[in-house]
Amino acid sequence: MGWLQRLFGLEKPQQTAQAPAQPAQTPTGEPVPPERVGLNGEYDQSGLAKRVALAFDNDPELDDVDTLYVAQTGTTVVLKGKVPSQAILTKMVTVAKTVNGATAVETNQVTVG
């Protein structure tokens, strides 16, 4: 089971979502902030966390660590739980920072070991 399936009950898309021709808009017509863009370019309150989970699924070095969870607070990716090693946590932080809309990664709720 992958990250998206375990955390959000979603199947991994066949193709990674590409930027839509028209930028996504909120119901009021405002552009959707990057941290709220979903997997398919739509508005999604948890869009950043879902795209980070997809990035973890797409990285062959990151197996699904079933004791770690991904959330978001605004533009900050929040990792919570336990990882088997510092190397895995470092890799996850590196991958999460590359996702559009992520400005920081919080790991103070993660234990290693």
Rank of each mutant, 00 (worst) to 15 (best):
R36H: 11
P20K: 12
T75G: 11
A21I: 12
D63L: 13
V52A: 01
K80C: 06
L39P: 03
G41A: 08
K80A: 09
G38H: 08
G38R: 06
T94Q: 14
V93K: 09
D63H: 12
F56P: 00
V52P: 00
Q22M: 14
D57P: 04
D63S: 13
L89P: 00
G101L: 06
A96L: 05
I88N: 09
T103W: 00
V32L: 07
A19R: 13
L62N: 06
L54P: 04
N40D: 15
V37Q: 10
V78R: 01
V105L: 03
K82I: 11
K91C: 04
V110Q: 01
A49L: 04
V93G: 03
P60R: 07
T26M: 15
Q18F: 10
V65S: 04
P27C: 07
A87I: 07
K82C: 02
A49C: 06
R6L: 13
P27H: 09
A17G: 15
K50P: 05
Q45E: 15
Q5T: 15
V37E: 11
V32G: 05
Q45K: 14
S85F: 09
P34A: 13
E11K: 14
M92T: 06
Q109S: 12
E106W: 08
D66Y: 10
L68G: 01
V70N: 03
L79A: 03
V99K: 01
G29C: 08
R51H: 03
I88M: 12
R51Q: 07
F8D: 08
V112D: 10
N40W: 09
V95A: 03
L48Q: 03
V52Q: 01
T90C: 06
D57C: 07
A96D: 00
I88Y: 08
A49G: 05
L7A: 04
D66R: 13
E30I: 04
Q22R: 15
Y69L: 13
T111S: 10
G9A: 10
E30K: 13
V105E: 01
